[in-house]
Computed example of a mutant assay.
Amino acid sequence: MKRSTFVYDGDCAFCTRCAEFIERRIPTGATVLPWQFADLDRLGLTETECEEAVQWVGVDGHRSAGPDAIAALLAGSGRLWRIAGAGLRFPPVRAAAWSVYRWVARNRHRMPGGTAACSLPQETRDRLYGPSTG
């Protein structure tokens, strides 16, 4: 049986901790794996996309990234998680979620469980998220 796939950055300790939380606490039928061990060609993803944000590839081939990927993961989970996923898709919440997601991605090395290895080079952060404002 084909399964949906949720892809994260396995080189980032913070991202890995979040993925472990998903696997322990969120009842989902999706495969959760680091992009470094995923068959990106089969999933239709690129390394650049995976460096930019978490990725979701549904059984139907539908793809989404960042908070949209998280919402898709939650949509196929238990009832309370589905409600949270629906909330993430609500336009004002979705817009705010993307702002928060970009901030977290830029600062993931400072998050609980994060390490210096989680930090993307400044040049990459600026390319992905825009120049730092402070």
Rank of each mutant, 00 (worst) to 15 (best):
A13L: 00
L73M: 04
G114E: 01
E23G: 09
E123H: 11
G113W: 01
G113T: 01
V7D: 02
P131Q: 09
F21M: 12
R94S: 08
T133I: 11
S64R: 14
D60C: 13
R24L: 13
T31L: 14
R102D: 02
S64N: 13
T48K: 14
A30K: 11
S132G: 05
A97L: 10
C15M: 04
G85V: 12
A13R: 01
E23H: 12
L45T: 10
R89G: 02
L80C: 08
R94P: 01
T115D: 01
D41F: 09
E51I: 15
S99C: 11
A65D: 10
T5N: 07
A30N: 03
T115E: 04
A19W: 02
R82N: 08
S99E: 11
P91M: 05
G114I: 00
I83E: 04
A86C: 15
L33R: 06
W98A: 11
R25L: 14
L74Y: 06
A72S: 13
E20H: 09
A116D: 12
V59G: 13
A95Q: 08
G44Y: 04
A65K: 14
P27Q: 02
R82A: 05
G130R: 05
V100R: 00
L40T: 08
D126H: 14
E23S: 14
R63E: 01
A96W: 15
I26Q: 08
R3V: 08
G113H: 06
R110I: 07
L74R: 12
M111F: 00
G10P: 06
T46D: 03
G61Y: 13
F14D: 00
A19H: 02
W56S: 03
E23P: 06
C118I: 00
